[in-house]
C-alpha cells in the first residue's frame, strides 16, 4: 500500500516535471544565479569585474563585527521594522475589520480601492508626496495653521516620525489585505452565537475574532517586517540625516562607495539575522496561526 503510494507520487512528479521546469529555470536564472554571485562577491577583496586584482577574504564579514556602527544601525533597523509593523497592525487591522464585517456592497468596494491605491502609485512619487505634506510650510503645516488660532510650526521632514509615516503608508495595505482575507472567512453566525451567549463586543474580539484572524496578522507582519528592516528609500528621502539605517548603508556600498563586496556581506548578515528572528518566532507564530 505504502510502496504503491510512493510510486504513484513519483510518477506524478515525473509527469509534472515538464510543467515545473519553466518555473525552476526562471528561479535559477533570475534569483539563484545572481544571489550565488553575491555570495561569491561577499568573500572578495575587490569586485572581480572592476579589473583590479582580487583575493578571497572574510574581511567584509569581519568589518561588521569590528565596527559597532553596523550593529547599532542593524539594531535601529530592527526597531524600525518592529515599530512600522506595530503601526500597520494598529491601523490595518481595524480597517480590515470594517471592510470585512461592517461595510457591504458598493461602499466596501470604494474603501477597498482607497486602501489598495498606494500599491498602484510609484514608490518614489508616494514618498515625495509625503515630503510635500510633512515639510515646514508644507500641506500639513499650512492646513493646521489655517485652522488653529495660534501659530505652530510643523516640520516633520527629516525626522524619525517622517520615516515611520512613509513606511507605514507604503506597507499598511499588506496588513489590510491579509487580515481582510482571514476576517472575511469568519462566519457571521459565529459572532451572533457569541453575542447570544452574552459576550460583549470586546470579549468577542479577544476570544474569537483575533484568534481566528491570527494567520492574517502573522502573514501581514512577516510581509512587512522583512522588507522594512532592509528599506532605504523612505529613510533616505524622508529621514534625511536622521534617516541612516542598515538598509541605507548597504545601498551606499552599491551606489555611492562601489564597495559591492562589503554591501553583499552586510546584506547576507541581515538576511541571516532576519531568518534567525523568524525561526525563533516560528513556534509562537505557528501556535498563534
Amino acid at each position: 500500500m505504502a510502496a504503491q503510494g510512493a510510486t504513484a507520487s513519483r510518477s506524478g512528479l515525473k509527469s509534472a516535471l515538464p510543467l515545473l521546469l519553466p518555473a525552476y529555470l526562471w528561479l535559477t536564472v533570475a534569483i539563484f544565479l545572481p544571489l550565488s554571485a553575491m555570495v561569491f562577491f561577499s568573500f572578495m577583496t575587490e569586485l572581480p569585474l572592476s579589473g583590479k586584482p582580487w583575493a578571497f577574504t572574510f574581511g567584509n564579514y569581519a568589518a561588521f563585527f569590528s565596527q559597532s556602527l553596523y550593529l547599532t544601525l542593524l539594531w535601529a533597523s530592527l526597531r524600525l521594522g518592529l515599530e512600522v509593523t506595530l503601526w500597520c497592525i494598529v491601523i490595518g487591522y481595524p480597517a480590515a475589520y470594517v471592510l470585512a464585517k461592517v461595510l457591504k456592497g458598493r461602499s466596501r468596494e470604494a474603501i477597498f480601492l482607497l486602501v489598495i491605491l498606494p500599491f498602484w502609485s510609484n514608490g518614489l512619487v508616494r514618498i515625495f508626496s509625503w515630503a510635500m505634506v510633512l515639510r515646514e510650510g508644507g500641506i500639513l503645516d499650512t492646513a493646521l495653521n489655517a485652522v488653529l488660532p495660534f501659530k505652530i510650526n510643523i516640520d516633520l521632514m527629516y525626522s524619525y516620525p517622517a520615516v515611520i509615516i512613509g513606511l507605514v503608508h507604503s506597507y499598511v495595505p499588506y496588513m489590510v489585505l491579509t487580515c481582510y482575507l482571514t476576517l472575511q472567512a469568519i462566519d457571521d453566525s459565529l459572532i451572533e452565537a457569541g453575542r447570544s451567549l452574552g459576550a460583549s463586543r470586546l470579549q468577542m474580539l479577544k476570544r474569537v475574532i483575533i484568534p481566528l484572524s491570527m494567520p492574517g496578522l502573522v502573514a501581514g507582519a512577516v510581509l512587512i517586517f522583512v522588507p522594512v528592516v532592509g528599506s532605504f528609500m523612505e529613510p533616505r528621502i524622508l529621514g534625511g540625516r536622521t534617516g541612516t539605517f542598515y538598509g541605507t548603508v548597504i545601498e551606499d556600498q552599491f551606489v555611492a562607495v562601489f564597495n559591492w563586496p562589503l554591501g553583499a556581506a552586510l546584506s547576507f548578515i541581515l538576511l541571516a539575522v532576519v531568518l534567525v528572528i523568524l525561526a525563533l518566532a516560528a513556534p509562537m507564530l505557528r501556535r498563534a496561526a
Binding site: D187, S189, L190, E192, A193, G194, R195, S196, G198, A199, S200, R207, V208
Partner: peptide, 17 residues
C-alpha cells in the same frame, strides 16, 4: 440587544468556535 436577553440560540450551521 441579544447580549442582555438571556436566550439560547442554536444555528443551522452549528456556529461552533
Amino acid at each position: 440587544p441579544v447580549e442582555k436577553r438571556r436566550i439560547g440560540m442554536v444555528f443551522q450551521n452549528y456556529a461552533l468556535f
